[in-house]
Design a protein around this nucleic acid. Structure first.
Length: 455
RNA sequence: CGGAGUGUGGCGCAGCCCGGUUAGCGCACUAGUCUGGGGGACUAGGGGUCGCGGGUUCGAAUCCCGCCACUCCGACCA
């Protein structure tokens, strides 16, 4: 038996989630700098604090959402067979000189010197470093395929950061890199990630549409952007309405099985952002009633880039024929911190945020409408204790405030379910369960409320 | 990077043109009383290097110069 300290041995190490002890700095008025809706709501709901242009501190509520999103991404990457590691944020300039990208990248790259005048950079992406790691250890086709990923902060010194976390300079990104012996194998890896991405966004309740994309400075010849539809999106998107109804593979998906039909199904129909949009083709391939013209937010991108990095960096593997050749690669990014903003863009109303259950910072909020009233306090605590014990993420509003303020705050922070406890309901031994998304309210006993969530 | 702006208690703003009481208002905050199912009312309080530096002046939040930070519109990006 390990010698655990008492704290670690505690049966219930989770801290109490009483609002009176939590840190949730709600803003009643909207800070003037926030233009876009998700940015305003994140500031008002006390999720983030701007520390510099495009650089944010994640406050407890926002951090919880960020962690939820991170965890979904991680689970789906793992399911697809990718392997997590963690690379540093700082990289040596010399590494980037091997691929010529140190000069090619331009002012978006934050360049730093250490005390020895060594040139460093804050990584905007990690192809060079992962290739360096790969070449140090892998030399045979027998070790392939490999998909490695990490979830790490990136920095791109955007000319004009805006839209809060949707386009910050510092942002959290999941980036995965695939290594294969040849192009057909690399395309299989690409398909794995493609399908994993369908699942990632679906689990967050987002309709993400893969669209043919330019490859940009990363390079390569096969790429898709995953775009979610939202009125405030940065780019115009055009697609076939039938894409929106395509089924998403469930968690029993066999990543070693046939993935190509799935990918084909999703890429067969027309879908393009405005920079690659071909109006003539759109009209030729899509019947008028199925032509969707909307705005979208890019939340992920997958690239196949072949030997673009492995060749200059001499990341070589020996094939079954005994011949050494550059490993064939792809890279696959998800904007994790951007997703938090995108989720709000896709899930809100006049009163505030409406979190999908899967990413909600807390699933249930308990509002004690009359703190200090014995019946209300007892009922609220009973609910709180039972839900916590059942493993439900619950936030208990135990502040001595007026009901209106509590309702407004709970609506703003967007917890999927509210349990409203007050003298009026308790007179009949009931509490009210409100579903944030629909506004539906239902009176039920405390036992029924517990069963409802703890099921 | 081109263009346009803004910096005044935690937040939103007024004051600046035309220099001169103790820099003001709403919200928030503190104490108390009454309240209590959609951001309550009253009373009494606390809190400000007016972004930073220099200059003009008897006197600068206010005029002049320089710098910094931030925002918005456009071209570019997870």
């Amino acid at each position: 038996m390990l010698a655990l300290n008492p704290q670690h041995a505690s049966p219930d190490p989770a801290p109490p989630m009483l609002l009176s002890r939590y840190f949730l700095p709600i803003l009643r008025e909207t800070p003037k700098e926030a233009e876009i809706l998700s940015h305003r709501l994140m500031l008002r709901a006390g999720m983030i604090r701007q520390e510099a242009a495009g650089i944010y501190a994640w406050l407890p509520l926002g951090f919880r959402v960020l962690q939820r999103v991170t965890q979904i991404v991680r689970e789906e990457m793992d399911r697809a067979g990718a392997i997590e590691l963690l690379m540093p944020t700082l990289q040596l300039a010399d590494l980037w000189r091997e691929t010529g990208r140190y000069d090619a990248y331009g002012p978006e790259m934050l360049r730093i010197k250490d005390r020895h005048e060594r040139e460093l950079l804050y990584g905007p992406t990690n192809e060079d470093m992962i290739t360096e790691i790969f070449r140090a250890y892998v030399h045979s086709y027998k070790e392939l395929p490999k998909i490695l990923y990490h979830i790490q902060w990136k920095f791109r010194d955007e000319q004009r950061p805006r839209f809060g976390v949707m386009r910050g300079r510092e942002f959290l990104m999941k980036d995965a890199y695939s290594f294969d012996i040849d192009e057909p194998a690399a395309r299989r890896s690409y398909q794995r990630m493609f399908v994993a991405y369908l699942r990632i966004f679906d689990r967050m309740g987002l309709k993400a549409i893969p669209m043919r994309a330019e490859t940009g400075p990363i390079g390569g010849d096969l790429s898709h952007e995953f775009i979610i539809l939202a009125e405030t999106g940065e780019s115009g998107v055009y697609c076939d309405a039938d894409i929106l109804g395509l089924p998403i593979p469930d968690e029993s998906i066999d990543y070693d099985g046939a993935l190509e039909p799935i990918v084909k199904g999703w890429t067969r129909l027309y879908a393009a952002t405005d920079d690659v949009h071909d109006p003539a083709r759109f009209e030729r391939e899509t019947p008028p009633e199925r032509r969707v013209r909307k705005r979208g937010i890019e939340v992920g991108q997958v690239f196949y880039f072949g030997d673009k990095y492995s060749k200059p960096m001499r990341a070589l593997v020996t094939g079954p024929d005994g011949v050494e050749r550059p490993v064939i690669g792809g890279s696959y990014g998800v904007g994790v911190s951007r997703l938090v903003g995108a989720l709000i863009e896709a899930n809100h109303d006049e009163a505030g945020i409406i979190w999908p259950d899967s990413v909600a910072p807390f699933v249930v909020g308990i509002a004690n409408l009359k703190v200090g009233d014995a019946a209300s306090d007892t009922a609220s605590l009973k609910l709180y204790g039972a839900l916590k014990k059942a493993g439900i993420d619950v936030l208990y509003d135990d502040l001595d405030e007026r009901p209106g303020a509590k309702f407004a705050r709970l609506d703003l922070i967007g917890l999927p379910y509210q349990v409203i406890v007050g003298p009026r309901g308790l007179a009949e031994d009931k509490v009210e369960v409100k579903t944030r998304r629909t506004g539906a309210r239902e009176m039920m006993s405390i036992g029924e409320a517990i069963a409802r969530f703890a099921a």
